[in-house]
Amino acid sequence: MAKIPYKWYKILAILLLGYTLIYGLLIPLPADVGMLDETIRNLFYHVPMWFGMMIILMIAWIYSILYLQNQNPKHEIIARALTFTGILMGLCGLFTGMFWGYNTWGSPWTNDPKLNGVAVGMTMYAGYWLIQKSVDDGEKKARLASVYNIFIFPLFIALIFVMPKLAKFSIHPGSGESVNFKTYNKTNNMEMVFYPAIIGWTLFFVWIAEIRARYEILKQRKENEKLFA
């Protein structure tokens, strides 16, 4: 059940990531990218991480709802694997963003609404991890963690999408009244790498989540066998 029956998505992920990694470095830049210069190539790593994180956390949210609806323990295992992968993806996005910020703004962390929103959002998901660690009973743990996951996802969305829009001054692109990538991208050839990069990275992390979920299910089965042997 946790195994995705389509093998081709792994091949697609490898092909798209290979294309992103190679052509992302070769692609000619738009004529005027201002102070961003060559660092604009980080667009193919930093931004897809956040897009993919949103997609993966959303699937995890749906699986948490499914678990509460029909109490199938496999749904909870899938939701947990997807949420942890989403957190990993968020951390990757955070670190690529810090490299980018270090090279363009001069500091890895600025007191910006978007950055602080994401930091608080990651703390929310740290709470999800803490619930997993501080309840012994398996069924109760699954129930509480699912409830918390359903509860935090809309607030997380509010925190990272609504809050930066409300803030008037932000140096992070895409929030408040700051610059957008539409401002720079005159020739549109960066979008030819950008959209495949989103799909590629998302599929790659779905692959990680799938392996994780299958491992957890096998571990559960082993424990059950030991219990009834």
Binding site: G117, V120, T123, G127, L130, Y148, L155, A158
Partner: peptide, 17 residues
């Protein structure tokens, strides 16, 4: 298992927005 310790950790990020 640790309600007193977990409550602020779970709640603080949620009330920030």
């Amino acid at each position: 298992n640790h309600p007193g310790m977990l409550l602020p950790v779970l709640t603080f990020p949620l009330i920030v927005p």
